[in-house]
Design a protein around this nucleic acid. Structure first.
Length: 318
DNA sequence: AAGTAGACCAACCGCGCTCGG
DNA sequence: CCCGAGCGCGGTTGGTCTACT
């Protein structure tokens, strides 16, 4: 097919942005919204490609960006979400208010990854390096299940994204046929990834950031349900899709219901590498490292709590 | 004070996906 | 169905800053 370059290389500036350029971009977007990124630079009088403008805006100029040091809470959130989602920075970013995926990615690569490595934890799999010892004692089953859960969540994220897009389409069609009398705060709003001009449509949408199609918070309650944690307002459609995901990853729903993801992950019977006996046993772990293990005793529980306390309510999704 | 190495992070690059003609 | 435009994402690069010798 042959991809055309994102911009004409001729005469377009690259490299660090100047305050003047920032001001131009900011002023233009505040007045008009970004519209088409490709045409924005010309309209805004910038000698940049649209891609560069988009990046500058989303990673730096957006008004709802929090800059500066990451809090301990944020660090924990990143580690936990990374354990579940892998390098899906945009998905992780949806759960860290006011942080960009780029910033999280940088922070992970420069700080958190090294810290985990130092502690003997593989930053990719989040498994302790002595896991091979565990696997010989029948714990590989749980680890395999953990791996399945990660796959499951990943597959579900993608499926939900598809669902969201389909629903958005339906919603648009519905609006064309029936004039809406009240704003729809459900799927359509969440599914929107594009910016609208501040003076268009819903007034309280002003300068809202573009976000991923589906937020993590919308997904986890579904997982929570499978752990036997009561979740309100579930409907049959959601249930059906969950069973389908379970089927896809070959993971019996009954097993998940009975055993409970959290207990599997936490290793109630001393499974996994975070237990004290393991930490203090086969692998030399110093006091500060052990303290980290203690802090993360409820590693996966906290993921669920984190997501459960999310501002967005999954029950309004459908 | 000068040189060097490592850390940090903004920005770039290229790929994959979606959508519309 | 095909193709190209547009966009978002994740990986990587390279310039700047800081600490150390």
């Amino acid at each position: 097919m042959g991809r055309s370059p994102c911009c004409d290389k001729n005469g377009l500036k690259k490299g660090p942005w100047t305050p003047e350029e920032d001001q131009k971009l900011l002023a233009y977007i505040e007045e008009h919204g970004h519209g088409s990124w490709r045409s924005l630079p010309q309209k805004a009088g910038l000698q940049r490609c649209g891609k560069s403008c988009r990046l500058r805006w989303t990673n730096y100029l957006r008004p709802d960006i929090k800059r500066g040091k990451f809090t301990v809470q944020e660090e924990q959130t990143i580690i936990q979400l990374h354990a579940l989602l892998g390098n899906r920075w945009s998905a992780i970013a949806t759960h860290l208010a006011k942080r960009t995926d780029n910033e999280i990615k940088n922070y992970w690569n420069t700080h958190l990854k090294k810290r985990l490595v130092k502690m003997g934890i593989d930053p990719v799999t989040h498994k302790h390096k002595n896991e091979t010892l565990l696997s010989s004692t029948g714990q590989s089953k749980n680890l395999a299940t953990l791996s399945h859960m990660a796959q499951w969540e990943s597959a579900r994220l993608e499926a939900e994204a598809r669902l969201a897009r389909e629903s958005k389409l339906l919603h648009i069609q519905h609006h064309q046929n029936n004039k809406p009398t009240a704003p729809n705060h459900c799927l359509t709003q969440k599914a929107s990834t594009s910016w609208s001009k501040p003076n268009e449509g819903n007034g309280d949408q002003q300068l809202e950031s573009p976000t991923s199609t589906v937020t993590f918070s919308e997904n986890l309650p579904l997982m929570i349900m499978h752990l036997g944690i009561p979740t309100e307002n579930r409907n049959s459609r959601v249930k059906d899709s969950e069973h389908e995901w379970m089927r896809q990853i070959n993971c019996p729903t009954e097993v998940m219901m009975q055993e409970g993801f959290t207990s599997l992950l936490l290793g109630d019977s001393g499974d996994l590498s975070l237990s004290k006996s393991t930490a203090a046993g086969a692998v030399e772990v110093n006091e500060s490292e052990y303290s980290y293990y203690e802090d993360n005793k409820n590693y996966w529980n906290s993921i669920l709590n984190l997501v459960d306390s999310s501002p967005s309510d999954s029950s309004t999704m459908f």
